[in-house]
């Protein structure tokens, strides 16, 4: 069938165009110095070398930036999952005066762009001595309204009878949260963990503002900074880009089902 072939050709061309920058990035990162800057551009290195990767770690303390990114992203993920799931549970399964109004207020403030908070937040964290510390990035990421929203929706689907049965057995609310709510929330926990981790890893503007000392840069900030000084070192910049992308790519490939589910959850809001 001709239309079947045509659709496949179009889709494959789009896929190649989509992947070409990555293929070139990986190829160039293994090329000898100067090879990526020759015409015509090619994807396969003539004599592959690991020089640029080792150079990044020995000469430019990329290991340090990698460590910073890992510490910050994992901390934000861990803390925000705990904080958001607790709040989501409270909104879903407790009744207290003003609950719905409070929840609606939170949701309506989601429209405020994060950039609005950045000037006062910087001054505040500066006063607290948290500029150039991991806490400077972690603290604003501790709770997220979107995360609370997702947890609330999910916990609402857990039957009340389960919780009431546990309460009759004398379980405290905290125990119910730990032994019933959290285990049942595993799918949404995984989904939010990936979203939060990748969001924190890829974040740029806030880390750029709060980390002014070289040794505290996260990978994206370090990479943007290297771009200024090492524009000519194409192959080394590509190696840096590969190392920045690789962790999120691995996390995504391993858990993509949960990630796609998360997009769908996010898109049914309101």
């Amino acid at each position: 069938m001709p239309s079947k072939i045509a659709i496949h050709i179009v889709l494959i061309i789009i896929a190649l165009l989509t992947l070409a920058p990555f293929l070139w990035m990986v190829g160039a990162s293994f090329m000898a110095t100067g090879e990526a800057g020759t015409y015509p551009p090619h994807f396969i290195p003539r004599s592959p070398t690991l020089d640029h990767y080792s150079g990044l770690f020995t000469g430019l303390q990329l290991g340090r930036y990698l460590l910073n990114s890992i510490i910050v992203s994992l901390s934000i993920t861990g803390i925000s999952l705990l904080v958001n799931s607790m709040a989501g549970y409270a909104f879903a399964k407790f009744s207290f005066p003003g609950r719905n109004r409070l929840f609606r207020l939170l949701i309506s403030t989601m429209i405020i762009p994060g950039q609005v908070t950045m000037m006062p937040l910087f001054l505040m964290l500066n006063r607290l001595g948290l500029v150039n510390t991991y806490w400077g990035i972690i603290i604003p990421g501790m709770a997220s309204i979107f995360g609370i929203f997702l947890f609330r929706q999910y916990v609402m689907s857990i039957p009340d009878s389960l919780i009431e049965a546990a309460r009759i057995d004398g379980a405290s609310d905290w125990r119910i949260y730990c032994t019933i709510i959290l285990p049942l929330c595993k799918p949404i926990l995984v989904t939010l963990a990936i979203f939060t981790f990748m969001g924190a890893w890829n974040d740029f503007l806030w880390p750029l503002i709060i980390m002014t000392r070289d040794s505290m840069y996260t990978l994206p900030v370090a990479l943007a900074n290297l771009m200024g000084e090492h524009t000519q070192d194409t192959e080394m910049m590509m190696a840096g880009a590969v190392l920045t992308i690789l962790p999120v790519l691995v996390v995504f490939l391993a858990l993509q089902k949960y990630y796609i589910k998360g997009i769908m959850l996010g898109s049914v809001k309101e």
Binding site: P21, W201, F204, P220, A224, A241
Partner: peptide, 24 residues
């Protein structure tokens, strides 16, 4: 895949892709 990759990193890559002389 482009969706999940770090924006700063792909911006760096695309700077070379847009290179007037040897860019892809």
């Amino acid at each position: 895949i482009p969706v999940i990759t770090t924006l700063v990193a792909v911006a760096v890559v695309w700077r070379y892709i847009y290179h007037p002389r040897f860019g892809l």
